[in-house]
């Protein structure tokens, strides 16, 4: 029996070693699987269980910084023609100064991804639509370019493409004569799910400001939901009752 023990030990050791190798080898794809689980298969329908949104901490937003604008432009290939009146802007920086107190602050303005979007209501063809996960988009194939959505948007968040485009990016298709706006970097969201970071938020972090947080408003454990619950935030034009997906924090009223 005593001779059998070393053998049994060796066998156990071999087994444990093999198990370690197997577990070790499966760790990397496992991590990848976790990421894939958070993403969405290309043919999988968008789930209404999620609602993507942004939390913008205006106290972290520097007046002189426009990194989010540059990040968005680069990500989507928004190249201006030096015609500010007609060049597209999906996100822009607003500088505010109170008329009586003189208090100044700055914040980014973009499509607010409303739960009850006026642009979707007024679109005659249904080209403006809201996905189940709350992202408001324009279907470039059925937009007729009537611009009624631009009349209806309370945030002036939409741009009409006034001229021929060249060198478009595959993940951000655009088209002359149609309307467009922030997509909440839907291509990143569909690829990476809750781990996605929109280009504006990414640029803001790279600049060291951390003013923009992206996440699932319906997931009570997400950073955005946790911060909204503990710190509070407000909607712009809350009086309209649109239940926006973009919320602003520490904004003087």
């Amino acid at each position: 029996m005593t001779a059998a023990t070393p053998f049994a030990d060796r066998a156990r050791r071999r087994f444990l070693k093999g198990l370690g190798v197997v577990l070790g080898a499966s760790a990397a794809p496992g991590a990848l699987l976790v990421e894939l689980a958070a993403a969405k298969a290309p043919d999988e329908a968008v789930s209404g269980a999620r609602r993507w949104g942004l939390l913008i901490d205006t106290s972290q937003c520097a007046e002189s910084c426009d990194a989010c604008v540059r990040g968005c432009n680069e990500e989507h290939g928004l190249v201006g023609k030096d015609r500010p009146a007609t060049d597209a802007q999906w996100i822009r920086k607003l500088n505010l100064r109170h008329r009586t107190t003189g208090h100044a602050h700055s914040l980014p303005m973009l499509c607010q991804h409303c739960d009850a979007p006026p642009c979707v209501d007024v679109c005659p063809t249904g080209a403006s639509f809201k996905r189940a996960d709350g992202i408001v988009l324009v279907d470039k194939h059925i937009c007729i370019g009537c611009r009624y959505c631009m009349m209806a948007c309370p945030y002036k968040a939409r741009s009409f493409i006034h001229e021929t485009l060249r060198d478009q990016l595959a993940h951000a298709p655009r088209g002359k004569g149609t309307v467009e706006s922030c997509t909440l970097c839907v291509h990143r969201v569909d690829r990476s799910g809750q781990d996605a970071v929109p280009a504006c938020a990414e640029a803001c972090v790279e600049e060291g400001h951390h003013a923009i947080v992206f996440g699932d408003l319906n997931d009570a454990t997400s950073v955005i939901a946790t911060r909204l619950r503990s710190e509070g935030a407000r909607e712009i034009r809350a009086d309209l009752g649109l239940n926006t997906g973009v919320r602003y924090q520490r904004m003087p009223s």
Binding site: P84, K93, L94, N95, L96, T100, K156
Partner: peptide, 16 residues
Amino acid sequence: PLMLFPGYEVSSTFFD
């Protein structure tokens, strides 16, 4: 102009 922030002067590169 659209009135997003009553009581504030607003400026931007998008003519707000």
